[in-house]
């Protein structure tokens, strides 16, 4: 049996997980030794302590939507290095590396799918592609998805996991925050519903745009969610940060998210919300 007892798509089977190779790993949550196969079978959640490991986009789609209902849109969009950006490597080279590593063209996959037979517009980010950073393509795909949903009268569900705006595209990345947020304004004007699901980690420009604009915001347990990264905050204020700072539970306590849902319950919870939103 695979993730939550649902059969894996061929795509998911070929994708490599973020969990180090090898049969056994030491759990980041409880330090216990974990059999990786057991972890995979449990949706990449530690069966002992419940630590949620990152999911690849296709794995996420697989455990979320009705089997075989996902149809990708705008799959062909690819980043270009329009600013001729290079640090230790050229941006173009980094894109190629990310493509090879992840077998994806960008840090988000978008399309349509059904969850318990309710049709949705779905976006799923993947942290393994350049830290899930938002450049022009991520912004464009998210915006097109929202516009598509507005045209087709569909609710939107977006799973975010991202380090923020992609530095290599500078202000072009920054403007994706404006673009995606403006598209959501139009979706709202049409009375359409948007569920934002936040996975570990979601920070920076992604949090400061579409990820924080869900009508309902769901987070996985223990996810780091914030505007600034903890390291930057610590450097700025020169103080130790309180324990649990910027984790899902902290955000819930401060009224910033609606609900924390364990991975195994996410599909069911999203479906139950959608049943209220879609008549």
């Amino acid at each position: 049996m695979s993730l939550f007892g649902r059969k894996k798509s061929p795509a998911a089977q070929t994708k490599k997980s973020n969990i180090p190779d090898g049969l056994w790993i030491k759990c980041k949550g409880c330090n216990d030794t974990l059999y990786t196969k057991k972890l995979d079978e449990n949706g990449k959640v530690c069966p002992k302590c419940g630590f949620h490991y990152p999911l690849r986009a296709f794995e996420r789609i697989d455990i979320t939507v009705d089997k075989g209902t996902f149809e990708e849109i705008n799959a062909g969009l690819r980043s270009i290095d329009s600013l001729d950006f290079f640090d230790s490597k050229k941006y173009e080279h980094r894109i190629k590396q990310a493509e090879e590593k992840t077998k994806m063209k960008e840090a988000v996959i978008t399309g349509t799918a059904q969850i318990e037979k309710i049709k949705i517009a779905l976006g799923v980010m993947d942290f393994s592609f350049m830290g899930g950073s938002m450049g022009s393509v991520v912004g464009e795909k998210i915006t097109r998805l929202i516009e598509f949903a507005a045209d087709e009268d569909l609710p939107v569900v977006i799973f975010s996991t991202s380090g923020g705006a992609r530095m290599q595209e500078s202000t072009l990345s920054l403007m994706q925050m404006a673009k995606t947020s403006a598209a959501l304004a139009r979706l709202s004007e049409k009375g359409l519903f948007y569920i934002s699901v936040l996975a570990d980690p979601t920070t920076g420009g992604t949090t400061a745009s579409f990820a924080s604009l869900g009508d309902i915001i769901i987070a996985e347990p223990g996810a780091l969610i914030g505007f600034a990264g903890p390291r930057v905050i610590k450097q700025t204020i020169q103080q130790e940060l309180p324990s649990g700072f910027q984790r899902s539970e902290f955000l819930l306590e401060h009224g910033l998210i609606d609900i924390i849902v364990k991975r195994e319950d996410l599909r069911k919870t999203i479906a139950s919300i959608l049943k209220f939103a879609v008549k």
Binding site: L77, I80, R144, E147, F148, K179
Partner: peptide, 17 residues
């Protein structure tokens, strides 16, 4: 705003199975 290649701006939301 943004720079990318692939599908033309005009051929929006092309579906691919």
């Amino acid at each position: 705003m943004g720079a990318y290649e692939g599908e033309e701006n005009g051929s929006k939301n092309k579906k691919s199975k």
